[in-house]
């Protein structure tokens, strides 16, 4: 490097150094909050479930609460129903939201404005209100029952208090976010690149499969992991709409803590839920990284 170039480079570097404290401060605040509010309680919970006093009061390494969870039929059923609900919701969300997002992106009709408003509406409806609306419409002697009765049809088998209750509520609740994320992904697909595909002979299905899907696979991952994480640890809707047994981990934890008064048990359930969410998170990070590497 010549002398001139060195001299020219110097102010830039000084500048970068003088900005460093401010940058660090900006990063430090969220990092601190995260450690205080997320990492520390997590470590605390994990350590309190594995370092426990035994009958004599000696604190030691003890996995018995985990052993109990994984040997208890009821706990395992609750875990299974939670995973099942999450999986079914994820599939339904994809099946429902992808067509809506595709319609909103590619329709030229004026109807699409109303469809968008309808799809986004659940975002502004609190889950409690959603749950009561659900009960009034689909519950026993709800609106559907009354309408069916009026035209002489038999009573429906209501999904209220069955595993399908939370599924319907959670899917409805998660439609807006999923549609919006998919829509933003579809926004990056240029019209001309789709027209070019049709030009070389691809029909609508092939355009979707070979041109659109590869471009929005990241958005699908983001949308699904957002909703999966939310659904896995959801509380209100499963509590209000779901069956009493088996129950999803959210209500299960709450009941273990308040009614059974077993804080260690509840904490163990929380740590296990946390573990599953971390696995989802890692899976998401890995897929995104792999997609970007392509």
């Amino acid at each position: 490097m010549s002398e001139v170039a060195k001299a020219a480079a110097r102010p830039l570097m000084e500048n970068a150094q003088s900005r460093r404290p401010l940058g660090l401060l900006l990063v430090a605040i969220p990092v601190f909050l995260m450690i205080w509010l997320v990492v520390w309680p997590a470590i605390n919970a994990i350590s309190r479930t594995i370092w426990r006093p035994d009958v004599d009061g000696n604190v030691g390494f003890d996995l018995s609460s985990y052993a109990f969870f994984f040997s208890d039929r009821y706990s395992l059923d609750n875990l299974a129903i939670t995973l099942w609900t999450t999986l079914v919701c994820a599939i339904l969300l994809l099946v429902i939201c992808l067509p809506i997002a595709l319609y909103l992106r590619f329709s030229r009709s004026r109807l699409s404005g109303y469809v968008q408003a309808l799809a986004i509406l659940p975002m502004f409806v609190p889950s409690i209100i959603l749950a009561f609306a659900f009960i009034r419409v689909l519950g026993p002697n709800g609106m559907v029952d009354i309408l069916f009765n009026a035209v002489g049809l038999p009573k429906i088998r209501t999904p209220y208090l069955t595993p399908w209750g939370p599924v319907i509520g959670l899917v409805w609740d998660n439609i807006p976010l999923t549609v919006l994320i998919l829509l933003s992904g579809l926004g990056s697909v240029a019209n001309q690149s789709i027209e070019a595909a049709r030009d070389v002979g691809a029909n609508a299905l092939r355009v979707f499969r070979h041109i659109i899907l590869p471009r929005i696979s990241n958005s699908i991952l983001v949308a699904l992991s957002f909703s999966v994480l939310g659904i896995f640890s959801s509380f209100t809707l499963p509590y209000l709409l779901g069956p009493a047994s088996p129950e999803m981990l959210g209500p299960f934890m709450q009941r273990t803590l308040r009614e059974v008064q077993d804080p260690i048990g509840a904490m163990t359930q929380a740590v296990i839920a946390f573990g599953f969410c971390i696995v989802f998170g890692l899976f998401y990070v890995r897929s995104v990284a792999r997609n970007q590497g392509k």
Binding site: Q192, E195, A196, R198, D199, V200, G201, R215, K294
Partner: peptide, 20 residues
């Protein structure tokens, strides 16, 4: 006829290559 069934080939102004 839809574009996929016509014996035509179109070159667009830009942004038409498949970047993936």
């Amino acid at each position: 006829l839809p574009p996929e069934r016509r014996p035509t080939g179109m070159v667009f102004q830009s942004h038409a290559l498949w970047t993936h």
